[in-house]
Computed example of a mutant assay.
Amino acid sequence: MKGISVFGSGRMGEIFAGNVAAHPGARLVSVMNPNIASARKLTDRFGGRPVGTPEEALADPEVEAVIISTPTTTHLEYIEAAAAAGKPILCEKPLDLNLERTDRCLEVLEKHPVPFMLGFNRRFDPQISALQRAVRSGEIGTLTFLMSTSREPAPPPISYVRTSGGYFADATIHDIDLICWIAGERPVEVFATGSCMVDPEIGALGDIDTAMTVMKMPSGALAHVNNCRRNVYGFDQRLEAFGSEGMIQTANQRDDDLIRWTSQQTDAKAPLKHFFLERYEASFRQELQEFLDALTEGRPPSATAEHGRTALAIALACEESRRQGRAIKPHY
């Protein structure tokens, strides 16, 4: 069993702690949070012990790997500490919100070459990973269009938006990573535009809650992403890949796939999964499995720090495009 310390005890910390505790090949050794009471809430449920500092967690010889699920602004500090201690790391996305600090993360990992995985969990969704394999195997011929729809039921609290780094770096970055991963290439230019149509407080911060992005790939393939922080029918998550020999789509998920007919309705289906934690529940479990498999097999994890830098560079180019109203070449 691999002994793991989870840094952070918020929403994502809870997901990781629960998945580690439930995994037959892992053991939750500790949960780290300067707020010990918060950490204890998770250890009371999932086992392990609460600790208040990264130094205490990393000094424990039972800790063989670290999962970082703390606020983005702390990632660099904790990556430095864990890497210097020789601990493999699974870190929630993004590495950071600016390229300079992201490059510092890469420098740290070059100096201390521990196994490192970035938490782009949607790669590990069964439908999405099957689509990626089909596209890369040539099932639909030459990729022409790649389209991603990602619409949330409601915007996050304004306190979260204030420190999120903007819509593209916070949310669209998932779609960006998937598109690059599926296509096997990264865009040479992006054009993005957006509006604030959901929450005026988001607009008052200079951010947006509704966006469309077009990316042009070196091959000529075009990718399109549409995002919105309001969707009355649930968490709408769809991908479509269109090529010279056909098309592949992923479907939204529901609690059941029954189709109902009554005197009041026809072709009726259950509502969509309502939140990303429900929609991507399987992907979080499979993400942890990939991390543990990589450690066991002695290979690099499939979602790397370099992938995180690429996705952030594109997200920042999207924001620049939105503000300038023109196509932008990402600075890789």
Results as ranks from 00 to 15, higher is better:
V51L: 13
G52F: 12
G52A: 10
P54I: 01
E56N: 04
A57M: 06
A57F: 03
D60M: 11
D60K: 07
E64K: 09
A65M: 04
I67E: 07
I67L: 11
I68G: 03
I68H: 02
S69C: 14
S69E: 10
T70C: 08
P71M: 00
P71Q: 01
P71A: 06
T73Y: 15
T74L: 14
H75T: 03
H75C: 00
L76C: 14
Y78N: 12
Y78C: 00
E80F: 00
E80Y: 04
E80P: 03
A81W: 01
A82M: 11
A85T: 09
A85Y: 07
G86C: 04
G86H: 08
P88C: 05
P88K: 00
L90V: 07
C91Q: 14
E92Y: 02
E92T: 00
P94A: 02
P94V: 05
L95P: 05
L95R: 00
D96W: 08
D96E: 12
L97N: 10
L97F: 09
L99V: 09
R101I: 12
T102F: 08
T102G: 02
R104V: 02
L106K: 01
L109S: 10
H112D: 07
P113W: 03
F116R: 05
M117N: 03
M117G: 11
L118I: 11
G119T: 05
G119Y: 07
F120I: 09
N121P: 10
R122M: 13
R122K: 13
F124M: 04
F124Y: 15
D125I: 13
P126V: 10
P126Q: 06
P126N: 11
P126K: 06
Q127G: 10
I128M: 09
I128C: 04
S129W: 11
A130C: 02
A130S: 14
L131V: 08
Q132S: 14
Q132W: 11
V135T: 05
I140H: 11
T142C: 14
L143I: 05
T144H: 15
T144E: 13
L146S: 06
L146F: 15
M147C: 15
S148M: 14
S150Q: 13
R151T: 13
R151P: 13
R151A: 15
E152S: 06
E152R: 02
E152I: 01
P153D: 08
P157V: 04
